[in-house]
Design a protein around this nucleic acid. Structure first.
Lengths: 182, 182
DNA sequence: TCGCACATGTAACGTGTTACATGATTAG
DNA sequence: CTAATCATGTAACACGTTACATGTGCGA
């Protein structure tokens, strides 16, 4: 999915600034779609406005910089919903952690172990964030996708806990430089 | 992760042609890392050879076109393992299916249902592919990551089966153009 | 006979990232 | 005082995709 579609999806639900769209795309539920940076969001919004799919108004704030608030137009809504009827791209899962796991036999056990712990921490954090979102968000479809993500992550977390020792056992044992060499 | 690293990872385990690297990256376990196309693999291999991280030899075949078989060099092995010591990038999960799910209330129930079925089929296929790989591959680390992927997909599959009706219920009921309008 | 699997490679193109430029307020 | 948050935007650059060019053998 591309940044254009992400912007339309977010604006479909509520008005937002470019800044806010980026926040939503990096945290919580919208991160399931694309993680976008400013450098792609601002140009995407500008183009969307040119094409009449969104409009913007500027709001001055005391002290803080002005905000450019975007709204979706009826044409934008229609275009977005229409795009959902087109064939869906396949889901993507990519993991550098699994690459490390694949090469565990070539790596010291303490490196493998600390990477597992990092991964576990990361999963815990994402679980906490999503839990917060379940409370805040009221729409039932939002709830459904958040629960889906939440349960998937809980599964990953539990699986890793249960099987981490097997992976560590495959790694090179840490050389104790002191006594009992063999 | 980038295509360079993917090439080194695959060549670390066995010699391969560009064609084969692409196959491995689209099917089975290596798809956890990056899915690369010819247009990125061939230039990456050429650059890797220039830099002395891999070497190639050409093998003629009767009838079929010649094959250019790449091997990793000791320098390449070292560089690859070294890269595994560097901080790991976060795992990525992106789903167009979930975008559709988020907008279920705006979509007809039959569309939502058929997309769920597609997703389920896709998961079943991937599960079958990975099962085959478990039998073929003997290295314990390979087995470990395949099992991780396999169990994650089985979980997703089961979760979807258990909760699909809730999502379909959120969608717009299909209009029966015949009798009993209200 | 049609299309797929094998097999390599280039060129044009699109999309997105990183770094930069700018600047006030607030919490630690 | 320092870092983070809010806030917008551009330019250079990296990376990868798609389409094209080329060609054989095999199975349905």
């Amino acid at each position: 999915m591309n940044v254009r579609t992400l912007c339309l999806a977010i604006l479909y639900q509520a008005d937002a600034t470019g800044y806010k769209i980026r926040k939503l795309s990096t945290e919580g539920e919208y991160a399931y779609f694309v993680e976008a940076s400013f450098g792609s969001i601002y140009p995407a919004l500008a183009r969307l406005e040119e094409e009449g799919l969104v409009t913007s108004r500027i709001e001055a704030q005391q002290g803080k910089p002005h905000r450019k608030i975007y709204s979706i137009t009826p044409v934008g809504r229609e275009a977005f919903i229409k795009s959902l009827f087109e064939p869906t791209g396949a889901d993507v899962f990519r993991s550098e952690f699994l690459l490390l796991a694949l090469f565990a036999p070539e790596l010291p056990a303490d490196l493998v172990e600390s990477r597992i712990i990092e991964r576990l921490d990361c999963l815990s954090n994402e679980i906490e964030t999503l839990k917060k979102h379940t409370c805040e968000r009221n729409e039932p479809a939002d709830q459904w996708i958040i629960r889906y993500g939440l349960e998937s992550m809980r599964f990953s977390h539990a699986y890793l806990i249960a099987h981490k020792d097997e992976l560590i056992a495959l790694a090179k044992p840490a050389q104790k430089p002191t006594l009992a060499a063999q």
